[in-house]
Amino acid sequence: MRHTTTISTEDQAIATGFERFYELLRRLTPRSELSLTAASTLRRLERSGPHRLCELHAPEGVSQPAMTQLVTRLEREGLARRGSDPADGRAVVVSITEAGREAVARRREGRTRALSALLEQLPAADHAAIMAALPALEKLGDLLAENTN
């Protein structure tokens, strides 16, 4: 593991590449009933299971009142549900519903179809390089999750 006090040229290039890829994914994502924050929150609930309401706002970069409003909307639309925390009845736990899972899957499928069309245009070596990078990207995502929990 590297420990530096200055940002390397390589790290700057990676950050720039991630920014460009993020823009690409945003453009490829079909416009749907879900905002970026709503989709991200539902993916988090799908991937990690139920969360206390108070744990959801910080990783999504929104205030707690904004997350409360979002969860209220998701609940009204049948995409999420609130319940009591079994360990502390005063705390609210949010979980994804089957309809929420389906909404996430539709969004993912639309993005995958659009991305697949672009990937088909890449040379095989570039496609292989992207595949080879996936495990490292997963580890990077795990590190982020560990550092924001």
Rank of each mutant, 00 (worst) to 15 (best):
M1N: 10
R2M: 04
H3E: 11
H3I: 13
H3Y: 09
T5M: 12
T5S: 11
T5V: 13
T5F: 09
T6F: 00
T6R: 12
T6A: 07
I7C: 09
S8Q: 09
T9V: 07
Q12M: 12
Q12S: 09
A13H: 14
I14A: 03
A15R: 13
G17D: 10
F18R: 14
F18D: 02
E19C: 07
R20P: 00
R20Q: 13
F21M: 14
L24C: 08
L25G: 10
L25S: 05
R27I: 03
L28T: 12
L28D: 01
L28P: 12
R31V: 13
S32E: 13
S32K: 14
L34F: 01
S35A: 06
L36K: 14
L36R: 15
T37G: 00
T37N: 05
T37A: 01
S40Y: 03
R43Y: 01
R44Q: 14
L45T: 04
L45I: 08
L45H: 04
R47G: 00
R47C: 00
G49K: 12
G49F: 06
G49V: 06
G49Y: 06
P50L: 02
C54I: 12
C54A: 13
L56H: 10
H57R: 06
P59H: 06
E60H: 15
V62A: 02
Q64L: 13
Q64P: 02
Q64G: 06
M67Y: 04
T68D: 03
Q69C: 00
L70F: 02
L70M: 15
L70P: 01
V71E: 04
T72G: 01
E75Y: 05
R76Q: 08
E77D: 15
E77Y: 04
L79E: 03
A80E: 03
R81A: 03
R82D: 01
R82N: 11
D85S: 09
D85Y: 05
P86V: 09
R90A: 07
R90L: 00
R90P: 00
V92A: 12
V94G: 06
T97G: 03
T97W: 07
E98G: 01
G100M: 03
R101H: 13
E102T: 10
E102H: 10
A103H: 03
R106A: 11
R106F: 05
R108L: 01
R108D: 14
E109F: 07
E109G: 07
G110Y: 14
R111A: 05
T112R: 14
R113P: 05
R113F: 06
L115S: 10
A117C: 06
L118N: 05
L118Y: 07
L119K: 05
E120S: 10
E120W: 07
A124G: 02
A125N: 10
A125R: 15
A125F: 05
A125E: 15
H127K: 14
H127G: 11
A128W: 09
A129F: 06
A132P: 07
A132I: 09
A133M: 12
L137T: 12
K139G: 02
K139P: 00
G141Y: 06
G141E: 08
L143P: 00
L144E: 08
T148Y: 00
T148C: 02
N149M: 08
